[in-house]
């Protein structure tokens, strides 16, 4: 099943995103050897700080088995900022109806582990492709430019989802080559992938259904994993370490999350008061004032 996680619902699905960043670390860092930064077992880059949308695939137990990241091409994205070499020095395409997709990956390890064959991998891959194309299509997007390696390119072709063209040329990025491919978000393409995989059902799960699944999974797991009993001791021992750098964006995100998560007026007032204090201390940037002109 597929769920879209973006800035609007990420507070509800922090655990899902964390698992996704770990999957990306295993796939792009360990397996493919891309030159990505991995901190604490998670692969997170500058574009993850730009409020992208993630299309995330889950198995029936609620484990993340696939993911891809989408950004608008009108703003900062990978092809305009870090993958320009793929475009032979040409400026990137920029269009309101063109999204960029990056970090497409599938957890082959998990999908194959219970004696499953590549069939499970293929199904998860197709479900992710269908989810991405349908999400883009219903957002009014006509085309997707996707940064992929030749392996994913072959997977796309094999799934009756071949790119209709490429922009720029294939270039060695670190240990592996990368390329920018174009996919249309037409019903014909979606139907082709659906037919190939034999998927006729709605691939999207509701936020509530996914949340319930995750809660059930965590409950089941908490029986097996013993939690550290004394948190205060852990925090005290950590106090010797140098303090981690906290970004302004993190503080803003935190404050926004607090305000949005407030359930009562008091909670909301408290959250706003915190922002006020942080603004006064120069820790949080001043809030934008929207002024309507006529």
């Amino acid at each position: 099943m597929i769920i879209i996680v973006d800035a609007l619902n990420k507070d509800r699905f922090g655990d899902l995103l964390d698992e996704m960043f770990k999957l990306r670390a295993r796939v792009f860092g360990d397996r493919l050897g891309w030159e990505v930064e991995i901190i604490d077992g998670r692969e997170i880059d500058q574009f993850d700080r730009l409020d992208p949308a993630y299309v995330i695939g889950l198995d029936d137990e609620g484990h993340v088995v696939s993911c891809v990241r989408a950004l608008q091409t009108t703003g900062p994205h990978m092809l305009s900022d870090v993958f320009q070499v793929l475009l032979d020095g040409e400026p990137p395409l920029r269009s309101a109806t063109l999204w960029e997709s990056t970090r497409f990956c599938v957890d082959t390890q998990r999908l194959c582990r219970d004696g499953n064959t590549m069939k499970a991998v293929s199904m998860a891959t197709c479900e992710l492709m269908i989810g991405s194309l349908e999400y883009a299509r219903r957002s009014g997007i006509s085309d997707i430019i996707t940064v992929i390696d030749p392996v994913v390119n072959r997977v796309l072709k094999r799934s009756d989802n071949a790119p209709y063209d490429y922009v720029g040329s294939t270039k060695q990025m670190g240990k592996v080559p990368a390329m920018a491919a174009l996919l249309d978000c037409t019903e014909e393409r979606i139907n082709r992938v659906r037919a190939f995989a034999g998927i006729t059902h709605d691939v999207f799960a509701s936020e509530d259904a996914v949340r319930d699944l995750l809660t059930a999974r965590h409950l089941a797991e908490s029986g097996r994993v013993t939690a550290p009993s004394d948190w205060s001791a852990m925090i005290l021992s950590d106090a010797q370490e140098p303090l981690p750098t906290v970004l302004v964006e993190d503080i803003q995100d935190y404050c926004r999350a607090q305000i949005e998560a407030a359930r009562t007026e008091e909670e909301r007032a408290d959250a706003l008061r915190l922002v006020g204090v942080l603004v006064r201390e120069g820790i949080h940037p001043a809030l934008h004032q929207v002024v309507f002109q006529n």
Partner: peptide
């Protein structure tokens, strides 16, 4: 809208801007 400072709480401005898709 202006007199009540609704722009400070209006989620169609504050929240929607953080999506990549139409909200």
């Amino acid at each position: 809208y202006a007199e009540n400072g609704l722009h400070r709480i209006d989620p169609t401005l504050l929240v929607a801007s953080r999506s990549i898709a139409p909200v």
